[in-house]
Amino acid sequence: MICIFHYAGRSNNPPFQKADSLVKVGELNWALMEYERIIYATTDNAERTLALLKKSECYVLLQDLKSAEKNLQRIFFSGLSDSLQYVARYNSAFYSYLNKNYNQSISELVMIDNFLPDSIKISSYILYALVLNENREWDNAKEKLVKWTDYNYSNQPQKRDSLINVINKLYHPKNYPKYKNPEKAHLYSSFVPGLGQAYSGYFADAAFSAIMQLTGIGVAAYGILVAKYYVTGFVLGYGIFQRFYMAGTKRAEFLANKHNHVSARKYNDCIKDFLLQLPQ
């Protein structure tokens, strides 16, 4: 989708011929080793970087994204051309994004943004927006998308304006997921049974928690006031109440976090669907 292999055309390069042909016939583990042999033998940093990129591509084919990401961390960026530096950093950011390592991904994208010319860095803005969305930095993500649209559609003002309109609608602050504070949820449930769960939007959970805590109080009241089993009533009633009270406050906090995750996921997935339809 948004992964790029600008270096794919270099496969006719003699040192890469053996490894590339191994990839073609599916001998991926062998290809990994042959790419590493190039890294070992070469004194040219560009060739080394290329081999590392291709090795990571192999890891991706083996569905080992962690190794793909880790492998690219071996790249030395000094002396690389802008285009190769871009591909290396972009792929590194992309693998980090796929591994949900968003801060690492942002740090690579920041380097692209700060040190590479506009003509090169602009292509990274879609990925940048996707990563910023995951970090709930929707205003920054919107800014990147508007810049990307301005740059790519500067000759087609109508298309540019319509795209910017869509972006503005998608990123309208009213559409941002409503954030529930987990600490508040915990606090509410500490004072009123089930209130924290209700605040997080989980009413069935709220009702269950309230009923169980009231049952505890009821058992205590019945034991002490009606059955005259003072100790038994207190111990059993307090035991039930205390268990559900403690669990309720923790559950309220968990549900607030769950709400935040689910709503952010829903919102980001909607934007992701739109972004992946854009021409890269």
Partner: peptide, 20 residues
């Protein structure tokens, strides 16, 4: 300890063979 207290109370009030 609370369970011991409960057992003692139910013994005093209900006796040795009481279901409680």
């Amino acid at each position: 300890l609370p369970l011991a207290a409960v057992a003692v109370e139910t013994f005093i009030k209900g006796g040795l063979l009481s279901p409680q």
